[in-house]
Nucleic acid binder design. Structure first.
Lengths: 328, 328
DNA sequence: TTGTAGGCGTTATCAG
DNA sequence: CTGATAACGCCTACAA
């Protein structure tokens, strides 16, 4: 990188002090509108820019925010995170802050690096998506060092500064719907561990839950197709399925339609998360909407309040709803 | 944030100089393995971490990398970028380099801030996805300030440090395939402006291109469905379609299957990009694969070479291929 | 191998 | 409203 002009050079060039230049850009301290404009204009002309690292060091505060999320193995794109990220990113931009995304792979080397950054003062605050031991550790790190943080999802002990969604109730809606529409033999295809969904589903199914079949061993499209094959083989009577996520539901639907099953007459399927693709799929996938974009948005807003020193007394609950489409 | 221990406090605590502590963490300068281990262990114990901003300022070099990409209006998730980002992210992690992803939306309102960051010395280097005037401006900024950069895609004047894919040839493959399989009435559904695809398609179609219908006004699922309706109304003879991206193809396919059209007998459809969902869709979508993940990977590797001062003499070309699936 | 001390580019305090 | 100047926390010649 070409060595750039510093505040000192620039101030000399203008014949003012560095303090004045600083005021012109920081928006802090008193400065006459006229000199400010002169300075800004001249900066534009000669190409002076404030050095971010020096500014952060001098001011003692950063304006970057990081998003940490658990990444699973495999090359399947993470649609869930992708849509949350969109909400986070757009909201942050609106607020004039800068986002850094950190997928936290489940390797200890990665998490140490994340810690280095968090504790190294890189961020004003962090947003952590719950779901792994690593997420939990990151939050613990933030908390014990009094770094503002927001949790997305459920994490034990994090009841306040969190953006949550009621998975359990969402799944319950699915159960109730299956029961109300006269289904008799329900199944649940789990993704990665999440007891809440299963519990809610059982609650909604009421007495039907006695016959609930539980299967599943992963969260991908392929796992969905496998689940269909297994159900067909071992429990052909199953007539309705709740899947732990939408991609899983698509995989299952795909296998079922290939098998000439009538959807939803013979088999009703509901997914989870309501990613955008759920509405595009063929058949379109009924789903429990988590309003992922809104979750991202809310987490940034919550963090902003924290950053401004506000006390937050209760979590932000995003409402779950059952969106009915062709698959059920 | 709790005010944290500085190198000075920590050095005093250990009874060594700050220089020694610095050496223990930076990996630069000579230091006995024994004292290094002692220092690292003690740091772990008392919770000392290097301040990132101070380090960067002192060392005069950053180790962050930013990924800039053009964002279009609307809340449609960007699958194209999402998959590239995955490649970028995983490669950065794998390299064990302390690099970070920094997705920034490049709308003109945001572009000044991007500039502030780039010129503010925040990054060691940047990766810019081509596709908008803003991307071009960002690259110009980087270039004129000698900041290492890599371009993903085609950008006029950027022939060297770029990771490119041959859109034109990819589209040509689609054209050739349609011709070879006896199609007679081709159509092209464009997304956002990209002449290269259309040109390649025409080349592959040979004499069929005289009858080529061109339509399209956007890149979303909805636009794909609209395109189908329009084609049906105005050019019912069309029997094969190339879409500028996969989501567009899905929208078109969805409208066509709802309309009881036999796919691919009556209408063959090929998409572009080969996002993961293309293989999941029903029917699965034939597509020109750009190997998005690999593009992300390659861009990081190229940037790494640049950062190490290596001269790069030619762009990294990622091969396009036609992946045949059910839709054609 | 380790210590000393000046410098990195801003911000913020305190006078003027 | 503006100017001097001491932090900010770390890196790195240069010395020892």
């Amino acid at each position: 990188m070409k060595s750039r002009m510093t505040i000192k050079d620039f101030a000399e060039l203008l014949g003012v002090s560095t303090a004045t230049v600083s005021r012109a850009f920081s928006g802090r301290g008193r400065i006459s509108e006229k000199t400010r404009q002169t300075i800004v204009a001249k900066a534009e002309e000669v190409g002076y820019r404030v050095n971010i690292h020096a500014r952060t060091l001098g001011a003692g505060r950063s304006n970057m925010v990081a998003l940490f999320y658990p990444a699973f193995e495999g090359d399947e794109p993470d649609y869930f995170i992708g849509e949350i990220m969109q909400g986070v990113s757009q909201t942050l931009n609106r607020e004039g802050r800068t986002l850094q995304i950190h997928p936290v792979i489940t390797k200890s080397s990665d998490i140490e690096r994340c810690r280095d950054y968090i504790l190294g003062g890189l961020y004003a605050g962090i947003i952590v998506v719950a779901g792994s031991q690593e997420s939990k550790n990151l939050v613990k790190t933030a908390k014990s060092n009094e770094i503002p943080y927001v949790v997305i999802g459920h994490m034990s002990g994090e009841h306040l500064n969190a953006v949550t969604f009621d998975n359990e109730r969402g799944a319950e809606l699915a159960g109730r719907y299956f029961k109300a529409t006269g289904r008799k033999f329900p199944a649940y295809v789990s993704g990665y561990l999440d007891k809440r969904k299963k519990n809610g589903f059982q609650k909604g199914l009421e007495e039907l839950s006695e016959k609930l079949i539980i299967t599943g061993s992963g969260g991908s499209f392929k796992h969905g197709a496998l689940a269909y094959e297994q159900l067909k083989r071992e429990h052909p009577e199953v007539d309705c399925v709740l899947c732990a996520n939408d991609v899983l539901a698509m995989g299952l639907l795909r296998a079922a339609t290939d098998d000439k099953r009538n959807i939803p007459e013979e088999l009703a399927v509901i997914g989870f998360d309501d990613i955008r693709m759920a509405s595009y799929y063929n058949p379109s996938v009924s789903s429990i909407t988590l309003r992922l974009f809104q979750i991202g948005e809310a987490s940034v807003q919550l963090l902003s309040r924290l950053l401004e020193g506000e006390e937050v007394s209760h979590p932000e609950q995003i409402k779950c709803d059952l969106i009915l489409r062709e698959s059920s």
